[in-house]
Design a protein around this nucleic acid. Structure first.
Lengths: 186, 186
DNA sequence: ATAGTTATCAAACTTTTTGTTTGATAATTG
DNA sequence: CAATTATCAAACAAAAAGTTTGATAACTAT
């Protein structure tokens, strides 16, 4: 009475995700047929429908997977974190996560599906940036959420560039840039 | 021998754009059928195919229209512009343009099609921000294109929020925030 | 190791949506 | 007002989506 998840389901999901990523690197998401995905994944079309409604459903599941992965990383590091600078720690985790899942992020960005992804990156970043800025004295009279949106937009925009161009600068440089560009006081 | 564009064509394009915007506010772009668009636009499906390959084609035409509109605004103001601060002038034009086309931008953002749009907003902003930053002394040793990506990402992210929430603050306040947040020296 | 369960499969099928073609009609242009 | 052409309805062909079947192989749990 373990109620283990059937290995075949795990495998099917895996090959479907991989197939989708591969195809999204080759052509527009909109032009990808469900039969293309099944051919690439080497599974039967009826098996696809046993798991997903349509290809958007599959895409969302893939992005959700990414999200869970990130949340786990955050949880893992939260425990060992005693540090003075939460926000930089958070960015470090984010950078490592994105670096590890670069292929997936790349295929998503190539297909203009960034909205969904960016939304949860913003959400994650926002948790700690807001408190970082609040802790420090704010000298302008710009609303706090406008300020955070500004810096998070900047972070994400540089991040997107970095995902697309892996080798322009290292993870360490990237983190250093962020540290320099985000002020303590606003 | 004027070679005027047939009024019927102009009208068809107009109702197709309007239909697409209306539908994109109601449901996912992916779920919109060509026959939905035609029903909404009150035109025959064969007429649709006389103008566009598919719905992506229509979407791209709509975005292109937006782009041309912005370029015209920029050109118009370029002539009367003698000012000290090009970049703030540019942002002002951008804000007015987006405000005027808010409905269209909103429907695009709702459907996670921001990539295409953001790309050309970035392109436009980039023209003058780079020179603004270059003119002033840069005291950090961060690459110039990383810096511009940062601030443009911030501008666009605030802009997106403003498009979605019209009444949070006025155009004038928005411009003021930008002016405060974008430094002269980096 | 095996009995029981269930995910996958191939194959045939229905339905939906796309895309094309026709010739008639009405709107637009010059 | 004559010539042109965009739109229309309607019928069609083709492609893709989605469903159903029963057989088989893979997996789980005891």
């Amino acid at each position: 009475m373990k109620n283990k998840i059937d290995l075949r389901i795990i495998k099917t999901n895996k090959v479907l995700f991989e197939a989708l990523i591969t195809l999204m690197e080759q052509k527009d998401f909109e032009k990808i047929k469900i039969s293309d995905i099944c051919d690439q994944a080497l599974i039967n079309r009826s098996t696809f429908y046993a798991h997903y409604e349509d290809k958007y459903d599959l895409l969302l599941a893939m992005i959700n997977d990414l999200k869970n992965n990130l949340e786990n990383e955050l949880k893992k590091n939260k425990e060992e974190d005693i540090s003075k600078n939460y926000f930089m720690e958070l960015l470090k985790i984010l950078i490592n996560h994105v670096d590890e899942k670069r292929e997936t992020y790349n295929s998503i960005l190539k297909n203009d599906k960034n909205g969904i992804v960016i939304d949860f990156l913003i959400d994650v970043s926002n948790r700690d940036l807001t408190s970082r800025l609040k802790k420090n004295n704010i000298i302008s009279n710009i609303p706090i959420d406008v300020i955070t949106k500004f810096y998070i937009g900047g972070i994400v925009n540089i991040g997107i560039d970095w995902i697309k161009n892996k080798d322009k600068y290292s993870k360490e440089e990237l983190l250093l840039y962020f540290d320099k560009l985000i002020p303590d006081k606003v």
